[in-house]
Structure formats: structure tokens, C-alpha cells
Design a binder for these strands. Structure first.
Lengths: 168, 168
DNA sequence: GTCTATTTGATATACTTCATAACGATTATT
DNA sequence: AATAATCGTTATGAAGTATATCAAATAGAC
């Protein structure tokens, strides 16, 4: 689940478009291009790759960005709540938070009402970074997507993705 | 890149729909739902999860299925060509082929014209398995997707995914 | 035709992501 | 008070993905 760090494979590998190969001519993709899962995965990797490129100045991964975004809208929640909402397992969420906390983007505070749990809150630096990050995403990343797809298709795509994630 | 084995996380975790949490009410997803990469990833995981479920009788992962599909349409290619087309790195392709060859679904043959390379070909069993796999994908997996999205949106989605994978 | 460089499949290895089990501390239940 | 459940955490394992390197074979330079 969730968001993962991108690799450089496609970038390095796809000097030639997928489905083409020097010797012997193009390979026939055949039914592969009609397999939604296949195109979905390749598209997703491309999108994450672009996200990382656009976000390079702030050094935020998609997963980290999603945490900051969620924390901003939902201050005072504990780790389990945030992790569950993002589909991240609690054990794996720990090191993710460690990284963000060590960069002073958020704080863990023992809850006075339940001293087992940690209340999560963005720091001022966290809020400032999130604001810059949002700007980068909007002006570089999403803007490029809209440029490729067109505004109408972009919006339709969002709706379809949400539908699949919800009803499938 | 490529196709990966699914996990059971979502299935186990999402007894409650994403964005909801028992104590304290629903969390606000906020701009998260407008982040295409986020929905794209979640949708992709759902689709792979469903693919594995539908393909359980044949025990084929999306990656393995894509190899069989590509080999059927492009017999006589070597490992590098197939791997490149699928965006798989050659070192990682070796064990993938080992698994399929040990199940007698394909064969590696030294090419007479270039004795460095292995010509890949489906066996009869491989072709038969692929035929059954295609049927499972069509009648269970894609059918369910079309049911959720509707035929028109399903087709539009395929087009958009291909566009992103190609032009992004 | 020999020498060098490149390519192919393979191995070893490392890093990241994702998953489970278990622990101490705390709270809830009985 | 005793037991069970929850929270954050640690340890650990299984995949997926990446790079470097190797022997064998071929291609290319001279």
C-alpha cells in the first residue's frame, strides 16, 4: 500500500519506448495493452517518478507528503489513526515518522488522556514545508498531468481511480 | 517496474473504508483525494489484488502472466528482449523464468545463430495454461472492472493509462 | 587473424517496501 | 485485582528492485 520511493529504472531503460527493441523490430504487446492492471502499474510508476522529480527541492516522497497533508487536515490524531487511513502498517509507520520528526517537520507528543498513544502535530517548519510542497505539486506535477491529459480527462481519471479504490 | 506479487494488507486492513476511523470519527482526506498519484497507487493495488484472486486456480502472478502473454505473441525472442519490453531488469528476469520453466510452461533454448542468447518459447502446457488464464482474466477480472466502471469508462481508462505510460 | 570491446545470461549483493510476531507500557474489562 | 486489549516499537522475513561483476560468445578495430 501507500506510496513508495521511485527507482531510476524506467528512466534509464526507456530510451526507446516500451514495446520496441532494436534487433528484430518492435515486439507485439498484444493483449498486454488491454490489461488494465499492466497499464495501471506502468502509469503509476511514471507518475511517482515525476512526483519525485518535481519534489526534489524539498526531498519529500509521496508517502511523506501524504502524511504531512493528512496531519495538516487532522491535527491531534495518533499514529494508528493516521497509519490506518493511509493504509500503512503501524510497524512500518514508525521509521517514516522518525525521518519526518528528525527533520523537525512534525512532533510526537504523549497524549495526556491516553499515555500509550502519541499525538501527532505538524511543526511550524512542517506547515511551511507542506505549503511549499503543495505549490510544487500543483504547479509542476499536476500541471504536467493536466497538460498531457487535458483538464476534463484529468478530472474523469481522478473520479475513476477513486471509484476503483472504493468499490473494487 | 512491472508487476509484483500482492499482499494481504488491504484486504485485512480495510474492513472499514479508507478515511474512516472508529474513535473520533472520519479523518479528512483533504487534498489527498485530488492527488492523482495517491489514488492511482491505491487503485493499482486493488486491481492486482483482484487479479491474484481471479488467477488463484492457475497460480500466476501478473508478472508471470505478462511474460506468457508476450511470449505467445513474440515467439523466438531472447531474455533481454522480453525483459526490456516488460521493464524488467535482466538479473531479476532470471528467477522469474526459472519458476516458469520449472513448471514446464516455457523453455530456454540456446540460439544457433547467437549461442550467447536463449530463445524463449512457450511449451504446449504453457500455451494451454495461457489460454485458461486469458479466460479467467476476461470472465472474472476484467468483467468485474467493467461492471464497476461501465464499458465506456473502462475503455477510456485504458486509453488514459496508456497515454500516461507513453507520454509522461 | 588477433586483440579489444560489447553483449548475453547468470550470480551475488544491497536497498526498499511490505508483512507478521512479539514486547513493555498503558488502559479497558471483568 | 486479574485478565485482556491497545499503543508504539523492535526484530525479522519475504518480495521487488537496483548495481556490479563474471564467463561465454560475438562484434568490431586494426
Amino acid at each position: 500500500m501507500t506510496v513508495s520511493k521511485m527507482t531510476s529504472q524506467d528512466q534509464a531503460k526507456q530510451v526507446a519506448p516500451v514495446g520496441f527493441d532494436e534487433e528484430g523490430g518492435a515486439l507485439q504487446l498484444g493483449e498486454l495493452s488491454e490489461l488494465l492492471g499492466y497499464s495501471l502499474k506502468r502509469a503509476q510508476l511514471k507518475v511517482f517518478e515525476d512526483f519525485l522529480r518535481c519534489m526534489a527541492p524539498l526531498q519529500l516522497t509521496p508517502a511523506q507528503f501524504s502524511v504531512l497533508l493528512l496531519l495538516d487536515k487532522n491535527p491531534g490524531r495518533n499514529q494508528t489513526e493516521i497509519a490506518n487511513t493511509l493504509g500503512i502498517l503501524r510497524p512500518n509507520f514508525v521509521s517514516l515518522l522518525d525521518a519526518l520528526e528528525s527533520r523537525d517537520l512534525l512532533t510526537r507528543m504523549r497524549s495526556p488522556s491516553d499515555r500509550r498513544s502519541h499525538v501527532l502535530m505538524l511543526t511550524d517548519k512542517g506547515r511551511a514545508t507542506l505549503a511549499r510542497a503543495k505549490k510544487l505539486v500543483a504547479t509542476r506535477h499536476e500541471a504536467r498531468l493536466i497538460e498531457v491529459l487535458g483538464p476534463a480527462e484529468h478530472k474523469a481519471l481522478l473520479g475513476m481511480m477513486a471509484k476503483i479504490a472504493r468499490e473494487f
